Computed example of a mutant assay.
Amino acid sequence: MIFPTIARNMLGIMGFPLTLWNLSMNRKNKVNPPGQIIKTSMSEVHAIVTGEGPVTVILEAGYSSISIDWCYVQPEISKVARVISYDRGNYGWSKTKRKTMTSLDSVEEIRDVLSQLKIKPPYILVGHSFGGLSMRLFASMYPDEVIGLVLEDAAHENQYVLSQENRKRIKNFRRLMTAGYVTSLVGIPRMFKQRIGRRFLAKEYDESLNYIGYTLGAYKTAYQEYVDSVTSAQQLVTSKPLRKDLRVVVISAKNQPEGWKKNQLLFTDLTNNTEVIEADTGHSVHLENPKIVIDSILKLINQDVQTEK
């Protein structure tokens, strides 16, 4: 990351008027966080914690996404359980001193948050897209604390392994992320309205997205997270298999490329208790048809209640 950072800073100096304009726009558009800031040993993590119950549901957003991505899901689940969504790295309202952005970093971060909040297991983990990697790693590392796992159109490690099939796609996307990071200080992405984050969110979040989607930290984390994606994939490859009796729900979107769909099939036998749901949506099921995700989580919660009885 050294050379892209040097290039970003040099460009910032050369285009100083643009740098001032971009930084002033960040200050002008600043929006207060909807959740709380939790200080850990490495970070200041923005987390939205709602609801109460015997189970804690952890919501992990996808690549370049944040806590408010779960704006349709979290309120419903909060009626019966405690729910946590948070911003990784420097996404959203979080700030971190971490030098890497791997799936293991994400697991360590959420573990620190749980410790600070004194929230104990059992946990139900929900991971969308890239977030599915860290939630699977969490379940692998702490099998006795996890009672359920929802993988919502989750990325498989094969998506990021440097195979002959993946090299061109990874190289092209990395070039795009590098360009976004290098030009972020002078505000080029802002000029072309290329903000970090997803679409489909409720209108009430437009002001927040217009702020957090253009912060320097957002572009930095998006770049670093993708650079480290090969490492994240390897962390999953070398992780222990999931507990065979773990309840898993795999939600796969129909409207995806064939290569992605092929990798989704690899999730069908993660455990002996894996259910597969095919969603007639695009990649962001939790935003396009949130009921599918909500019902899947509630089913796991209800199953746990029945088990306790």
Rank of each mutant, 00 (worst) to 15 (best):
S115T: 09
V227E: 15
I13F: 08
V150E: 01
G51N: 02
Q235F: 02
P257F: 02
Q306P: 00
Q159W: 14
Q74R: 10
K261H: 11
K254L: 13
I48S: 05
Q74T: 08
K97Y: 13
V248S: 00
E204A: 07
G259E: 11
L270G: 02
I13H: 03
I297W: 03
S65Q: 15
S103H: 12
M1C: 02
Y142R: 05
Q194K: 15
R8H: 04
T56G: 01
C71P: 02
R195W: 09
S229P: 00
M1R: 05
V31I: 05
L287P: 03
E152L: 06
S208A: 15
Q224F: 13
G282M: 00
P75Y: 02
R167V: 08
T96S: 12
P33C: 04
V31T: 10
R198Q: 13
V249P: 04
T100Q: 12
V150W: 01
N172H: 05
M135D: 00
G187V: 04
D144Y: 03
T281L: 01
S134L: 02
E157S: 10
I2V: 14
D206V: 14
L151I: 08
K220M: 11
V49L: 00
N26A: 12
G15L: 06
K95R: 14
F267R: 04
I188E: 03
G259P: 01
G148N: 08
A202Y: 13
L20H: 04
G127T: 09
L300R: 04
N90S: 11
L300I: 05
A233W: 06
P241T: 09
I68P: 11
I38S: 00
Y223I: 06
E204D: 13
S252Q: 11
N273T: 05
G148H: 05
E275T: 14
S115K: 14
P34F: 15
A61D: 04
N22Q: 12
V55C: 04
M101G: 13
N255T: 06
H46G: 06
P17Q: 06
K171T: 14
Q306S: 11
N32C: 07
I38Y: 02
I2T: 15
I294V: 00
M25E: 15
G187I: 09
E108I: 14
V49P: 00
S163A: 01
C71Y: 10
I119P: 01
I294M: 01
N263M: 10
T178P: 04
D153F: 05
T102Y: 01
Q306L: 11
I13R: 03
T281M: 00
G53H: 04
S115P: 00
L176M: 13
G53D: 03
E52F: 05
L201Q: 07
V113Y: 09
T281C: 03
G53M: 03
K291F: 07
K203N: 06
Q116G: 00
L104G: 06
N32F: 06
V80W: 02
S65G: 09
R27E: 07
T5Q: 13
T238M: 07
E308K: 15
I212W: 01
V161N: 07
L20V: 15
S78T: 07
G259Y: 09
R27K: 15
N263W: 12
H283S: 06
F200N: 15
N90M: 12
I2Q: 09
L117D: 01
D87H: 03
S232D: 01
K95F: 08
T19H: 08
V80I: 13
